[in-house]
Design a protein around this nucleic acid. Structure first.
Length: 897
RNA sequence: GGGAGCUUAGCUCAGCUGGUUUAGAGCAUCUGCCUUACAAGCAGAGGGUCAGGGGUCCGAAUCCCUUAGCUCCCACCA
């Protein structure tokens, strides 16, 4: 069959992916084989493929395909995540562009829009994964909000509530004013920011009834204005919150501010008189040592407020504008108020100074342009101590292995300082919390029931004293949804319906899954919580290994981002270079846990490798075969050698896989194919131009090729399938992916070593040709003095174009070189510049003498010979002997000149 | 403030339990080649005081201490 001169990836890739789908090659059902399972980290349903996905999914596909070729029942389960905050934000934005406001819609109307959005965008990323060659079992495609997954979430919520692990609490939580929902502590990311520290005057308010009495002690700092009125100076980064101030706090041990003790001060502009309280919490060294206390809008201030019984004034609306309670700037955005109030304080002479200040500001992880606002809210929480207790041992004991292992420490630190998880979100897109509130009298504590559905809720409510006759319409279901991660943490269980249907055939077969491939950024959000849910609901770990990928950066080391425009479009790359090339390019520089500095040149390398594979097959497939011919001596050695080397390399590759060193495995195969098979083996067996090859060698060559394709297949599924199908006729539905990966046989290290020696000789002769500008077409003769398996002479002859290999040393003008202890010389009448050759040999002699000296120094050290193991000493002795032999060889070569 | 990690060739990284010559790979570079599979290729070559300093040891890129620089994570200092 005639092959195209150039490999055309897009045509080949589309063809085989359709074929694989058509024959349901990726589908898995429980059977008698061992299971190998990966659950995909579900990408956001509205997301599109970026380079991080490419890396992550390439690794998963390599692991899956590798396992499949080990004869395991490989099952890679795909799916998407509803990503409540991100998706709801997108839906809200789209509605806004149509002039529709969320608050004008009912929940049902909004959800209808959201589902429409999901239907439109939900499949995109999965289709993109197909372009990459991902061998997911698409029949199993799941969605965190599909029926089974939703039912699982509700069941788990009810169960955990019944176990007393879920509670409602009034807490200071992180509020996202843009999404208008609370966030968990993990969802807040802190960023360094250049901000200002405003120094504000808080005048002493009660000096007429309680005159200021300076203590006169050392370090006291008094502030008075032109009229002699006393004031305190408060340093704050958030002047817009002064309307919520209900106290000023000093440290009782602070000599600077002791004089303020027992006084009252006036909040600037606001005019409210607040007490000066004392608490050791205040850092004497920071700012002026005076802290404004705003219990409604700061976590620490809230704690102070509790201790000191302070009033709490919430001055913000949910959208971050100032509320009626603020009294001033009502309706303005908090950020605008900050600027305005600074100006107003300035003109009222209440602003002492403004300093530059670096601080950290919390932002929503999903919405990084709006600062998070601490806010006092009643929310649903999950008690985490229990989960930390069950999730820590499997990782510490190695039942789950992290790659790289450094993340075990990160994991442990988090679990050992675990905080309760705020699981409710003020969103509609998500799993609605299965709690129904009962009517209560004004001012009474809230009452609710938690149930699987409304009927059950009603039944439960009617069991409560005083509610025996309650009507269904009087129960009000909680409006809030659950945190997205409250569904993802069940993923490895819920995908096999293990929550709804415990002990079913699938969950028993596929769980625990084998490997998880994900980024370290979601170790808390997801990895840790899956371990918790797995232990809680299955009594076993959800996976055995976690492979943490790094972040894909550009070659300057910058994170890829839309703003920088440094992120290539993966589909564009696939179209340009082919999916195989992109996969290989991503893997080349990615060891577990290390960031990947992406550069197109890596993908080019992948593309070039495809070209190499393609062209080598063009060569082999183009040979005519003479079944009656006998293999030549070179071919016999070539086959023997490559057979040995293949076994050895397979062993190495498998070791790399077992340690998740995928880029090393790839590199080993890459070199085996390109350097050993193409550059050496094929050159050795290649028949003379126009001549046929003997049948035996041809078959061996094709068998090697086939084995190599199988080794490459996990990384480059398309081109390997294309050629494998091309090698001979395959049955419809057959695929290289179902072939068993070649197993390592025995190999003879001594033979491999002597072959390497022969290779070195060839390289030496080629080096002489390069130096002397002797064409490869011009044949030379070669003298060898030393140990070398004579069977390998023909190999040298063929590859170095040597007409005759003889024992001994060339007489007359010649160029020589030493390989190990083998002295090689090439007679070069007419080519040789004797003085140049002498200088070269002198340099070699010098080098060898220095080396000998260093070895002898070691051997002369009595401490060394006495303490070092015998094997090490023997090795040094051998080095000494070898060096002596080489020196002798160089000397005799010099003499010969 | 606490913790983890990194620093090896121009770039990206291996180097595992300290010992296989005087430290490897890929890419890039340089020199020759349009050799009839492949110039996206072939052949050959150059390139490193293993961040600096100290220590342990017969022996250190590897173990320990220390200095410097970088990265990441955690933590409520206004």
């Amino acid at each position: 069959m005639e092959l195209n001169a150039k490999y055309n990836p897009s045509e080949v890739e589309d063809k085989w992916y359709s074929y694989w789908l058509e024959h349901r090659c990726f589908h898995s059902e429980p059977d008698e084989r061992g299971a190998y399972t990966i659950v995909i980290p579900p990408p956001n349903v509205t997301g599109i493929l970026h380079m991080g996905h490419v890396l992550n999914n390439t690794i998963q596909d390599v692991l899956i395909r590798h396992a499949r070729m080990k004869g395991l029942n490989a099952c890679w389960v795909p799916g998407t995540d509803h990503a409540s905050i991100a998706t709801e934000a997108k839906v809200v934005a789209r509605l806004a562009s149509k002039g529709i406001r969320k608050r004008d819609l009912t929940r049902e109307q909004f959800l209808q829009y959201a589902w429409e959005w999901k239907e439109e965008h939900g499949g995109i990323i999965l289709e993109q994964l197909k372009k990459l060659g991902s061998s997911c079992d698409w029949d199993r495609t799941a969605f965190t909000m599909d029926e089974k997954r939703s039912e699982s979430v509700t069941k788990v919520f009810v169960d955990l509530y019944n176990k007393g692990l879920i509670y409602r609490g009034l807490r200071m939580v992180n509020w996202d004013p843009k999404a208008q929902t609370v966030l968990s502590t993990e969802e807040v990311v802190y960023r360094d920011e250049k901000s200002k520290l405003y120094h504000l005057r808080y005048y002493v308010a009660d000096s007429d009834v309680n005159p200021v009495k300076p203590t006169g002690e050392e370090g006291e700092v008094l502030h008075t204005d032109e009229q002699g009125r006393y004031y305190a100076v408060v340093a704050t980064t958030r002047p817009e919150t002064i309307m919520g101030d209900t106290a000023m706090c000093i440290n009782p041990k602070d000599p600077k501010n002791r004089w303020l003790s027992g006084h009252k001060v006036t909040v600037p502009l606001v005019g409210r008189v607040i007490p000066v309280i004392e608490d050791r919490y205040v850092d004497i060294e920071f700012g002026t040592g005076c802290l404004k206390v705003t219990p409604a809008h700061d976590v620490n201030d809230y704690a102070l407020g509790k201790t000191h019984n302070l009033e709490t004034i919430d001055i913000f609306n949910p959208d971050g504008t100032l509320s009626e309670a603020a009294g001033l700037y009502v309706g303005m955005d908090r950020m605008d108020v900050r600027k305005q109030i600074a100006a107003d304080l300035e003109s009222a002479s209440l602003l002492e100074k403004v300093e530059d200040y670096d601080n950290k500001v919390g932002y929503s992880e999903r919405n990084q342009d709006t600062a998070v606002e601490p806010r006092l809210c009643r929310q649903w929480f999950l008690k985490m101590q229990h989960f930390a207790d069950i999730a820590l041992p499997p990782v510490l004991e190695g039942k789950i292995k992290f790659h790289p292992s450094k993340y075990v420490t990160t994991y442990r630190n988090w679990l050992e300082n675990i905080q309760d998880w705020c699981i409710s979100r003020q969103l509609w897109w998500g799993h609605r919390i299965p709690a129904w509130f009962l009517p209560v009298a004004e001012g009474e504590e809230e009452r609710f029931v938690v149930a699987l559905n409304a009927e059950e809720a009603l039944a439960k409510a009617r069991q409560i004293k005083g509610y025996e006759n309650i009507g269904a319409e009087e129960l009000v279901r909680d409006e809030d949804a659950l945190d997205t991660w409250f569904s993802s943490w069940l993923w490895p269980v819920s995908l096999f319906d293990g929550i709804n249907n415990p002990g079913n055939k699938e969950i028993s077969y596929y769980y625990p899954t084998n490997d998880l491939v994900t980024g370290p950024d979601i170790i808390f959000f997801w990895v840790a919580r899956m371990i918790m849910a797995g232990e809680e609901y299955m009594g076993d770990v959800p996976f055995r290994n976690v492979y943490f990928t790094g972040i894909v950066r550009d070659k300057l080391g910058r994170k890829m981002s839309k703003q920088l425009g440094n992120s290539p479009d993966p589909l564009g790359l696939i179209a340009k270079y082919g999916a195989d090339a992109v996969r290989m390019g991503m893997l080349l520089c990615s060891s577990a846990g290390n960031d990947v500095l992406y550069d197109d040149s890596q993908v080019e390398q992948g593309r070039n490798f495809c070209g190499k594979i393609w062209n080598s097959w063009r060569l082999v497939s183009g040979w005519s075969v003479d079944e009656n011919a006998r293999p030549g001596e070179t071919a016999v050695q070539a086959v023997k050698w490559f057979d040995n080397l293949l076994s050895k390399t397979i062993q190495t590759v498998e070791e790399h896989y077992s340690k998740f060193r995928i880029s090393d495995a790839l590199m080993a195969v890459y070199k085996l194919f390109w350097d050993d098979y193409c550059s050496w083996y094929l050159e050795m067996v290649k028949p003379a131009y126009g001549q046929p090859i003997d049948g035996e060698t041809y078959n061996a060559t094709v068998n090697f090729f086939e084995k190599l394709l199988k080794l490459i297949h996990p990384v480059m599924p398309f081109i390997t399938e294309e050629i494998w199908q091309n090698i001979r006729h395959r049955e419809e539905g057959a695929s290289i992916m179902f072939e068993l990966s070649p197993a390592a046989g025995e190999w003879d290290d001594i033979y491999l070593k002597s072959f390497d020696l022969a290779r070195e000789v060839v390289i030496g002769v080629r080096g002489i040709r390069a130096q002397k500008q002797i064409s490869p077409k011009e044949s030379l003769s070669l003298f060898l003095d030393g140990e070398l398996d004579a069977q390998l002479y023909p190999v040298i002859s063929k590859l170095a174009n040597i007409s005759k290999v003889e024992r001994g040393t060339a007489s007359g003008a010649s160029a020589s070189f030493i390989v190990d202890t083998l002295k090689c010389s090439v007679p070069l009448e007419g080519f040789i510049d004797t003085s140049e050759e002498k200088a070269k040999l002198q340099a070699e002699l010098e080098y060898q003498r220095k080396f000998l000296a260093s070895v002898r120094a070691k051997l002369g050290n009595a401490n060394f010979t006495a303490h070092a193991p015998a094997a090490v000493v023997d090795l040094e002795r051998k080095k000494e002997a070898d060096a002596l032999a080489r020196i002798e060889a160089v000397e005799s070569a010099l003499k010969a000149l």
